[in-house]
Simulated scan of single mutants.
Amino acid sequence: MRKIGWDISHQEFIISDHYYFSKLQRYINEAGMQVDEVDEFEKLANYDTIIFNYPEIPFKKEEVDFIEELVKKGKTVGIFAYYKNEDHIADTCNTLSERFGIKFNGDIIIDNINNYDNDNLLITTTDISNMNNSINKVMLACTDSLLTTDPKVRILVHGEDTCESKLEFEPILFAEYVDENGGKFIAGGTCVFWDNYSIDLYNNKEFSLDLLSR
């Protein structure tokens, strides 16, 4: 059974919040995986997949070193942010992600054509790579863009040609650093693609489970 450690030591959104994440919890269990909230950072080493969903406390150097070692040992680590950077979410995520050649831009991505419910902040895209073939379209709400600086980083989700970056960056929305030993570090511009509102739209469910089981 794959074990997922959902970190709460950096004041992340908790997966046990029924209003926001009850569906994700149920789908994880139905997929034969286990998820635990983890409030002691060192205990993350006991898990196959480690998730930081909107961390609000910056990562210390020793914590970044710790996560880097876990990735080198084959673990999968994911960190997910939000748009704007008004509360420094991009800056906080960058204290970890930049070690793996991925930077959150603090951007706002809109799409006036490809979106859900005629809302240009709820963008949809079919430009998906290096994922399960069953994932054809996802909805990403209120997403940041990413800048990649390492050749070991590959794009997972890119905006459609119709989307726009307020800061004029390329609309890279999810990306993944792949270690030579098989470990992965995943960064996503939004943390609400798998909440109760979004997860049943398009292939968001399959997308979420793929990220957790890579």
Rank of each mutant, 00 (worst) to 15 (best):
S198M: 13
L96H: 08
V153A: 04
T95N: 09
I108N: 15
N196H: 07
K184T: 10
D65I: 12
G188V: 01
S134Q: 13
L44E: 05
F207D: 04
F52G: 00
G32W: 05
E68F: 13
R154L: 09
E86P: 00
E168R: 12
K61M: 01
I135E: 08
D111Q: 09
E168H: 14
M139K: 09
L122I: 00
N46H: 10
Q25C: 11
V77E: 11
A187V: 10
L167Q: 14
F21A: 02
I89Y: 07
A31Y: 08
P55Y: 05
K103P: 07
E62F: 04
D48V: 09
D87V: 05
L156P: 09
K152Q: 15
Y177V: 10
N132F: 03
L212T: 12
N94F: 04
E206W: 01
D200C: 02
S22R: 11
H158A: 06
I89D: 08
T124M: 01
H88L: 11
D127H: 08
S22Y: 06
F21T: 01
S208Q: 08
I113W: 04
F13R: 04
E12Y: 00
E86R: 13
K60Y: 03
N115T: 02
V77W: 09
R2A: 05
Y82S: 11
L212D: 13
Y197S: 13
R214K: 15
G5E: 05
S129A: 10
Y19D: 14
I110F: 09
S213Y: 07
Y47C: 03
K205A: 01
E69D: 14
V157H: 08
K184Y: 09
T162W: 00
N204I: 02
S22N: 13
L121Y: 13
N136I: 07
G159M: 05
I108P: 08
I172R: 14
G188Y: 03
L201A: 03
T126Y: 00
M33A: 08
M139T: 03
I4F: 04
S208A: 15
D87A: 07
N53I: 00
L173H: 11
A81N: 14
I8R: 05
A45M: 07
R99S: 12
E160Y: 01
S145I: 13
K60A: 05
F193L: 01
A90G: 10
K166F: 06
Y83Q: 14
V178I: 14
K205I: 01
Y202P: 00
E63F: 00
I186R: 12
M139V: 10
N85I: 04
N130A: 02
G101H: 15
F80R: 07
Q25W: 08
E164N: 07
G32T: 07
K184I: 04
R26T: 13
D87Q: 09
F52W: 02
